[in-house]
Write a protein that binds this DNA or RNA. Structure first.
Lengths: 337, 337
DNA sequence: CTGAAAGCGCTTACAG
DNA sequence: CTGAAAGCGCTTACAG
C-alpha cells in the first residue's frame, strides 16, 4: 500500500462498498454490527484515518473552533495577560472534551481580527477573548453578526452577539465590602471607569454600590484610570499617592494593576497591608507570590471555558442560547490584612 | 447571492473561467495583472474567501501546524508549567508570521498523544512540547517517525526526530558558576538527575562541570530528585534542609522547583540570600515576584518558538533540517545576593 | 442493511 | 495568457 489508505482501500479489502465503509466508521445504525467490526478492524490494520479535509468539505462542518485572542494596549506578544492563558487552558480542555479541535490565534483589535476562520470553513465558530476598547470593538462585532458568523465573546453583554462573562459588578462589590469589613473607609479604585471598558466599569460600579450600601462617600479623587497592565497600575498609584488625598485601602481593577500598585506603594516607603490594604481582580498565578500575597477576586476560568465552548457549540447546532454570567469569589491573602 | 460565494460565482461575474479565478486569487504569474485586479475586486465585493477544506483537499496541504502540549506529572489542566505558556505564545506568533494556522491541544503522555492531526491531513506537521519521562516517550517518537509523520520536538537531541532545545548543560553551568563567583562552595542541586529527564540531567551535568572546573567536590548528598513542580521542590528542599548536610546555595532545575525551595527555606526560618542563595531555571513570570525575586537562567522562548516553527516548515517542504540548540543567559535578581 | 452515483469547492496538469 | 476537465476523499440522498 503506497501513500495513505483511503476508504476505497478498506472497501476493497472488506468486500463491501465505499459507502458502507464510510457509514461503518461513523457507527451508522444502518450498518450491521458484523460489518462495522470488520471494517474497523481493517481500518486499524491499515492505520487508516478519515481525511478531515474531505469530510469537512462534504459535510460542511469542520468540528473545529477558533480562539482569537486579542489585546490592544500591549502589542508585545510576550506580555499577554496571564489571565487569558488560564482561559486558553480551560477552553482547550473544554474543546477536547466536546470533540472539537481548537485553532488559536493572537490578533490585534486594530486589525481586521476576525481573520476568516469561519468564512473559509476552517472553523465552525469563533471564540473572542480579550479586553479591548468597547467603542472600537462595537462595529466589528456588528459586522460579524450581520455576516452570520457564529461566535461567542468573553465579556459583558453590552454588545451584539452571544457573550459569557463573570459578574464583574458583583466582584467589585465583594472586593470593596471585604475592605470595608476590615475597617477601611477611604478606599481608592485604580482602573478604567468609563464606557470604553465595560468590564472594568462594572467593577467600578460594584465598588460604588458597596460604598453606598455602607453609607460611605464616593470620592472621585480616589479613582484613577489605568489600563490593565502593571505599568499603568504603577503610574496611577504613584499619582494617587502623590496627590495628597489620604486612603487606607486600594482596590485594583485587575491583578496586573495591583502588582503595579504594590510596587508604587513599596517605593513610597509604605507597608501593605498596615498602611494600605490592597485587593486585586482575576487571581492570576503571580497573585500568590507577591509580597505580601494578593487578596483578589477569582474568576472561575475553568467554568468560563466550558460555558464559552458549550454555548458556541449549541449556537452552531442552531439551538437557542442565552448569554451567561458567572459568579466571582473573593480569595483572601495577606495584602488585605 | 444565497449562501457563500464560490469561485464559480466570481468567474461568472468576471467573465472568465473558474480556473482563471483560482489562479488570479493566488497571484499566479500566468494571469494578466488586469485580470487579477478584476477578479480580486469582485471577490472582495462578494465577501469571498477560499474554502480551505476544498483547497487543502485538492492541494494536499493544510497550511496548519498542530501543537501538542503534554505534561505527565500534573494531570490538573490548570497547573500547566507557565514556561510552556510562554512557548505557546511565541509559537503562535511564529506560525502567524509564516502564514500557518495553529491547532492547539493538551495531551497526556500516557495516552496516544499524537492524536492524528497529521494523518488526517488536518495539519501538515506537529510540534511536541512538554517534559515527560524520556523512557516512556521513546517508543512513541519512534512510532511517529516510522509512520513518516513530520514533527519537531522541544527537547534534547537524545531521541528520534528533529528537535530544538536550549543548551541545558550550559545553563546549568552558568547558574552554578554564578553561585561560585558569589563565594559559595557548597551548592545543592534540586531536580531529577537521571536519564528519565534528559533536560534536567543536562542541567545537572552543567552543575557538575562547573563545580569541577573550580576544583569543588561533587557531593551526592546535596542532590535531591524533584519533578518540575512547586510541591516537589518544596518537599525535596525540606528533606535537604533536614538531613543535616550544610550548604549555602541551591540551584533548582526549574523555577517551579525554586519557588517550592523558597517556601521550604522560609519555613525553616532561614533567609534568602543571606543564609541560602537560590538560582532557578526558565525565567517564568512568577520569578520576578517571589521574595526575594529569583535569579534564574532564561530560556529564549521567543527564539525557540521561531526556530521550532521554521524547522518544522522546512521539514514539511522537504528541506534538509538540523536539530538546533539555543543559548541560555543568566538573569540576576535578589535571590542570589 | 447495502451499493452506485452525485457533488462539496477547490487546484492543476493538459491543451491551445 | 486562458479554458475545459479531472480528481482530491469523503458524505449522503436515492434506490433497492
Amino acid at each position: 500500500m503506497k501513500g495513505k489508505a483511503t476508504s476505497f482501500d478498506i472497501a476493497h479489502l472488506a468486500g463491501v462498498s465505499q459507502s458502507t465503509v464510510s457509514r461503518a466508521l461513523r457507527n451508522s445504525p444502518l450498518v450491521k454490527q458484523e460489518t462495522i467490526d470488520k471494517v474497523k478492524r481493517i481500518a486499524r490494520e491499515l492505520n487508516y484515518t478519515v481525511d478531515k479535509n474531505a469530510s469537512s468539505l462534504r459535510s460542511q462542518q469542520s468540528q473545529t473552533l477558533a480562539l482569537l485572542l486579542f489585546e490592544d494596549p500591549t502589542s508585545d506578544d510576550s506580555n499577554i495577560n496571564p489571565f487569558f492563558f488560564s482561559m486558553l487552558a480551560s477552553i482547550t480542555q473544554a474543546c477536547a472534551h466536546e470533540g472539537y479541535d481548537l485553532l488559536v490565534s493572537f490578533q490585534q483589535l486594530s486589525n481586521d481580527f476576525h481573520a476568516d476562520y469561519e468564512d473559509s470553513h476552517k472553523a465552525d465558530g469563533i471564540i473572542l477573548l480579550g479586553y479591548g476598547d468597547d467603542i472600537e470593538y462595537k462595529p466589528k462585532l456588528e459586522a460579524l453578526q450581520s455576516q452570520g458568523t457564529r461566535f461567542v465573546r468573553w465579556g459583558p453583554q453590552s454588545q451584539a452577539g452571544l457573550s459569557v462573562s463573570c459578574d464583574n459588578r458583583q466582584g467589585g462589590a465583594q472586593a470593596t465590602k471585604h475592605l470595608i469589613d476590615k475597617g477601611h473607609q477611604r478606599i481608592a479604585f485604580v482602573g478604567d471607569a468609563s464606557n470604553h471598558y465595560p468590564e472594568f466599569f462594572a467593577r467600578y460600579q460594584g465598588y460604588v454600590s458597596a460604598l453606598m450600601a455602607h453609607d460611605l462617600p464616593v470620592e472621585p479623587a480616589l479613582q484613577h484610570n489605568a489600563i490593565t497592565t502593571e505599568e499603568a497600575g504603577y503610574e496611577a498609584t504613584k499619582q494617587l499617592l502623590n496627590q495628597g488625598d489620604s486612603f487606607t485601602a486600594l482596590f485594583a481593577a485587575s491583578d496586573l494593576i495591583a502588582v503595579g500598585a504594590l510596587k508604587a506603594i513599596a517605593e513610597k516607603g509604605l507597608k501593605v497591608p498596615q498602611d494600605i490594604a490592597v485587593v486585586g481582580f482575576d487571581d492570576i498565578p503571580v497573585a500568590s507570590y507577591t509580597s505580601p500575597p494578593l487578596t483578589t477576586v477569582r474568576q472561575n476560568t475553568k467554568l468560563a471555558g466550558e460555558v464559552l465552548v458549550k454555548s458556541l457549540i449549541a449556537q452552531i447546532r442552531g439551538e437557542e442560547v442565552e448569554s451567561t454570567t458567572i459568579a466571582t469569589a473573593i480569595v483572601e491573602r495577606g495584602s488585605s490584612g
